[in-house]
Computed example of a mutant assay.
Amino acid sequence: MSKFTGASAWVPSEGGLKKLTAALPECRGCDLYEYAERVVPGEGPARARMMLIGEQPGDVEDKEGHVFVGPAGRLLDKALAEAGIDRSTVYLTNAVKHFRFERQGKRRIHKTPGAGHISACHPWLDRELEVVKPALVVVLGAVAARAVFGPGFKVTEQRGRPQELPDGRSAVATVHPSSVIRSREYRRDFALFVDDLRVAAGLLGGG
């Protein structure tokens, strides 16, 4: 059981993305709001056919208040372009909406959200899926995979393979772009990341 109350009390049950985004800053469903500078909402078309779900905002996103605008976002932009996906047509969000970090001197170092944070924030993700109604969900990394598929899902084993969610929606899992940045085999891992995104694009093209 999570020690947090969860976001349900703050998530509007009706209305569109504008109402959802307006409600986010009030959320007190877990402790992350106490430390992050701001909440970072999802962004993209209200009826996007593809939704990309990442882990959490990073340092740059937390400061600017926009999703995927830091180093991982720049790599994602490059990979999407190579896969033939126009970023402006997809909805981008995170499984956890606040930045979790630990301080090292003046720097804020990314810290992986805990299971309690993922669970607490899940009502926001559920509502985004209800509002946007994407035909395809692309899951970026292990935290997002836990939020979407459950704790038993292994991205390393299942990446790039078409999946089906309980609601019948199509999904594809791949690594988080930040892992490609850190890779010692950057060219290889960037190419594999693009390949996974091409699988996603192909699923949409056939839908």
Rank of each mutant, 00 (worst) to 15 (best):
F68H: 10
F68Q: 09
V69W: 04
V69E: 03
G70Y: 01
P71K: 14
P71F: 02
P71V: 11
P71W: 04
G73T: 10
R74F: 04
R74T: 08
L75Y: 07
L76G: 01
L76N: 04
L76D: 00
L76K: 09
D77K: 08
K78P: 00
A79Q: 03
A79P: 00
L80Q: 09
E82I: 09
A83F: 06
A83L: 07
A83G: 12
G84T: 07
G84P: 10
G84R: 10
I85M: 10
I85D: 08
D86G: 05
D86W: 13
R87L: 14
S88N: 08
S88C: 08
T89S: 14
T89A: 12
V90L: 04
V90F: 05
V90T: 15
T93G: 14
T93N: 11
T93D: 14
N94G: 11
N94C: 07
A95T: 08
V96Q: 02
V96C: 01
K97F: 13
K97R: 15
K97I: 13
H98S: 14
R100W: 09
R100P: 00
F101S: 07
E102R: 13
R103V: 15
R103H: 04
R103Y: 07
Q104C: 04
G105N: 06
G105T: 09
K106N: 06
R107P: 00
R107T: 11
R107Q: 07
R108S: 08
R108I: 06
R108T: 12
I109E: 04
I109D: 02
I109W: 10
H110S: 13
H110D: 11
H110N: 10
K111S: 14
K111V: 15
T112L: 10
T112A: 08
T112V: 12
P113Q: 07
G114R: 04
G114P: 01
G114K: 03
A115D: 08
G116A: 15
H117T: 12
H117D: 15
I118S: 00
I118N: 03
I118E: 01
I118Q: 01
S119P: 00
S119I: 11
A120R: 02
C121N: 12
H122F: 06
P123A: 08
P123R: 11
P123K: 05
W124I: 12
R127F: 02
E128P: 15
E128H: 12
E128Y: 12
E128S: 03
E128R: 15
E128M: 07
L129M: 11
E130D: 11
E130Q: 13
V131N: 05
V131T: 11
V132Y: 01
V132L: 07
K133F: 00
K133V: 10
P134L: 03
P134T: 05
P134Y: 02
A135W: 04
L136W: 00
V138P: 00
V139Y: 05
V139A: 08
L140P: 07
V143H: 00
V143G: 03
V143F: 03
A144P: 03
R146V: 02
R146L: 00
A147M: 07
V148M: 12
V148Y: 00
G150C: 04
G150S: 05
P151H: 05
P151I: 12
F153Y: 13
F153Q: 03
F153A: 03
K154H: 12
T156L: 13
E157R: 15
E157A: 15
E157H: 15
Q158H: 11
R159A: 14
R159G: 01
G160M: 06
G160I: 08
R161L: 13
R161K: 15
